[in-house]
Amino acid sequence: MESFRGRFTNKIDAKGRVSVPAKFRAVTVAQGFNGIICFPPLNEGRFIEGCGPAFSNQIDQMLARLDPFSTERDMLASVLLGESAELMFDADGRVILPEGLREMAGIADEATFVGAGERFQIWEPKAYEVFAVEAKKQVPGFRAMLKAQPPTTDGGGR
C-alpha cells in the first residue's frame, strides 16, 4: 500500500487554496478518493491531521469498538468526525484548507505537509522546524520501539 512520505512546503493563496503534494494526491487517488480528509490532532500539537479514506475507515472502526453512548466516544467522534473536512482536489491539485483548521494550526501563508505513513500532518512551516529539531533530539531514545518482526515460517516443520 502506498504511504504518505516526505516533507513539502507550499504557498497558500488569498482564497485559502494550497497545492497538495503530488505524491500525497497519488496516495488518496489510489484509495479511490479525489481529495484529502483533514481533522484536528488528538494531541496538543499545532498542526492539521490529514489522511485518505483508508485511514479514515480505520478511525471509524476504532470508534465503532467503543460504547456508542459513552462520553469518551462522543468526545473522540466530535473531534475526529465532527471537526473533520473532506477536501476535494481542484483541477490543479489544490484544496481549500478550512479557516478554522488553519487558525487552530497557526497556518497563514504557507503550509508544510509532512508524511507519517498512513496519514500526514500539515504544519505552519516555522512551527514544524521547531518540532523537527526536538524530534531529532528525542528519536534516538525511541529506537528500541522499532523492532523488526521475526521471520515467519511456512508452517512445514524444521
Rank of each mutant, 00 (worst) to 15 (best):
G115A: 01
G117M: 14
E118I: 14
P98I: 06
I96T: 12
M88A: 14
A127G: 10
P125K: 08
G82M: 08
L76S: 05
G93W: 05
A116V: 13
V114M: 09
E83Y: 10
G93R: 06
P125W: 10
K126A: 15
A111E: 01
V114H: 07
A132E: 15
R119H: 11
E99N: 09
G100K: 04
I96G: 03
A85N: 12
P98H: 10
T112P: 11
D90H: 13
V95K: 01
D90F: 06
A116E: 13
A132L: 11
E83A: 14
D90V: 12
S78C: 04
M88N: 13
A85C: 12
F131D: 07
V79W: 07
Y128D: 00
G82A: 10
P125N: 01
R119V: 06
F89C: 05
D90P: 12
F131I: 02
A111I: 05
T112Y: 11
E110S: 08
A116L: 11
E86L: 09
A77Y: 02
Q121E: 13
E86C: 04
A91V: 11
T112I: 08
R119Y: 10
V133M: 11
R119L: 04
E103C: 02
Y128S: 01
G117T: 00
A116M: 14
D92N: 13
E83H: 10
L81V: 15
G115N: 10
L81Q: 09
R94T: 06
A85P: 01
V79Q: 08
E83Q: 15
V130W: 06
A85D: 09
E110C: 07
F131L: 12
E103Y: 02
W123L: 02
A91D: 15
L101F: 07
A91S: 15
V114N: 05
P98F: 02
Q121M: 14
F113G: 02
A91Q: 15
F89E: 07
E118C: 04
S84I: 12
G82H: 06
I122K: 00
A108I: 07
A132C: 04
R102L: 03
A132T: 08
E86N: 12
A127L: 02
L81N: 03
R102F: 11
V95C: 01
D90S: 05
V79M: 11
I107T: 04
F113E: 00
F131C: 00
M88Q: 13
I96F: 03
V130Y: 09
D92H: 12
L87S: 00
G115V: 11
L97G: 05
R94Q: 09
E99A: 14
E124T: 00
I107A: 00
L80Q: 03
K126S: 14
M88T: 14
A116R: 15
G93K: 00
R94N: 04
L76N: 08
Q121W: 14
Y128E: 05
G93L: 03
E83G: 02
M88F: 09
R94I: 00
I122S: 01
P125E: 08
F120A: 09
L76W: 02
D90T: 07
D109R: 15
V114F: 03
L97P: 05
D92W: 02
I96N: 01
E129D: 15
I107H: 07
G93F: 03
A108S: 13
I122A: 04
R102C: 06
L80F: 05
E83N: 14
T112W: 06
D109K: 15
G106I: 09
A105W: 07
E124L: 10
S84K: 05
E99M: 14
A111Y: 05
A111C: 00
